[in-house]
Every structure is written in C-alpha cells, then in structure tokens.
Computed example of a mutant assay.
Amino acid sequence: MENQIIENLLFVRKKNPLVHNITNFVVMNNTANALLAIGASPAMAHAHKEVKNLVEIANSVVINIGTIDEYWAESKLIAAKKANKINKPWILDPVAAGISSFRNDVLKELLTYRPTVIRGNASEIMALDSFDNIQGKGADSIHQSIQAINAAKNLNQKTGAIICISGVSDFVVSNDEIYEIKNGHEMMTKVTGLGCSATAVIGAFIGLNENPFIEALSGMSLFSLAGELAQLRSNGPGSLQTNLLDYLYHLSENDIKKHLKINKYED
C-alpha cells in the first residue's frame, strides 16, 4: 500500500490536476495553498453561469458546505449534478452536518448526485447517515472517529461513496475494506479549516481518476502525515500552518516509508 501511495503522490506532482473548489469563505486561501503545495492546481469559482464550465475542464470537484447560503447552495448543486452527469470525480465535505434543517436538506440533495468520496469528522458522518435529529457542535466533532465506522459503512452502501472519517485515527471505508491511519497530531485541531484542506488534497488525488479508494487513502494519509511531521517543528498553531504547507511540498518517499502508520482495520 505504501508503494501505491508514493506512486500516487508522484503522479499528482506530474499531472498537476485542476481541482475545482466550491468551498467556504473561511478556508479558501488555506485550501488553495494546500493544493498548490501538494502539486495540484486550484480553481475557486461559484457563479451559477460558469460552474458547469469549470466542472467540465477540471480533473475533480470539491464541494464544501461550510458557510452555505441559498446562492452558494445552488452553485454546489449545479456542480454536483454536472459532475454526476459527466462522471467527473467529486468529493463532499459536509461541514456541520446536522445543525439545521436547511443544511440537512442541501446535503440530502447533494447525496443524490453520488459523490465519489465523502470526508468529514465523526459527528458529520453520523449526521449524514441519519438526518432524524438536529445535532452536532458546528464544525467540531462530539464523537470519536471509531464511533462513526458503522455510519460510514451505511453511507457507503447507500451512496456508493468512499467514506473518510477524520479524528485521532483517520479511517477510510469502502464496501469491502477499511484502513486506519494513525498519523496526524492534536495541534491540527487548533488551526481552522485543516479538515477542509484535507478534503481538497483528497480532491487532488481523486483527480487521477484511476482507483478512487487508493486515491482517497493517499490524500487522507499524506495530509495527516504532513501534519504530524509539521508539528515537530512548530511552536503552536501559527507555525504549524506554515510548516504543514512546507511538508506537503517536500514529502518524500523516505518520509512515507519511515513515518506513515497505516493498516487494514478489522472490526
């Protein structure tokens, strides 16, 4: 698996995939820089009249509902519908799923357009699996990632999407296998939007459009690894953010083979 992840990293750097992001106000700059650092090319456009054009020319699409309103909701729905129609890989980040009926209604419609990957924290994944109750703590999780595995399995069965759960351990769930990633660091939770940046990086990898499970696993694991290595040189959240970009840019085969902690998960 490590060799496949290394190959995917080299392929992203060579291919420089164009990733169309319809994301939230808080994280635009962060996610664009993360994409550039890993070797991809970001596009940020949400105007109704050009969303379809961007989806057509992009290698993949990232839809993040963080600071959603009626106009941006329509932009995201247009993009997801177009991506589904032309079989373009896309990833959904269901930020703060469960906190309002408006947000839930938008998410329900987005799910009908069959995302390739869904990445969220445990509470977001559990809320997506069951919209029965309004719950959650905004963009923060009130659950551990391991608690969301059954919800992730259900979501995978219902939507066909690969499910990535962020947490102390990250999990990547498909219909027949689950991998656990034990990299990352608690300090990453003190920088706004790092989960959103992880989603964008996964978006770059699914832009390779060959094996979405391995691509999602590659993006998720490499982002967590870069965060873990970055905190070793950081005095706090401010320097972590800068060092993380540097590590995304400099990640090497040796870093991956020496530090990546990934294994197949058995219930």
Rank of each mutant, 00 (worst) to 15 (best):
I22T: 04
L36T: 05
V191L: 04
I142K: 12
Q135M: 14
F131V: 12
I178M: 01
G138A: 06
I262F: 08
K261F: 10
N30R: 13
K88Q: 06
S145A: 14
D69R: 06
W90L: 02
N209S: 12
D170Q: 06
Q144T: 07
L107S: 09
I65W: 12
T116I: 03
S169P: 01
I214L: 15
K158L: 14
A122S: 03
I206V: 10
S169D: 13
A230V: 04
T23G: 05
I68T: 06
F223V: 00
T242W: 00
L77S: 02
H20A: 09
Q157C: 10
D132I: 10
I68S: 11
P237Y: 11
A97V: 10
L229V: 11
S75C: 04
A230I: 00
P237N: 10
L229F: 01
A198N: 11
L225F: 08
E228G: 15
V12I: 14
K257S: 05
Y265F: 15
G193A: 07
E124N: 11
E7H: 08
F213P: 03
K108F: 01
I178V: 12
Y71K: 12
I86S: 02
N30G: 13
K81D: 09
H185E: 09
T31L: 14
D129G: 15
S101K: 15
S252G: 03
A40I: 03
G238A: 09
A139I: 15
N211T: 09
T189H: 05
K137D: 14
I99H: 01
M126W: 05
M28Y: 05
A151H: 07
N133Y: 14
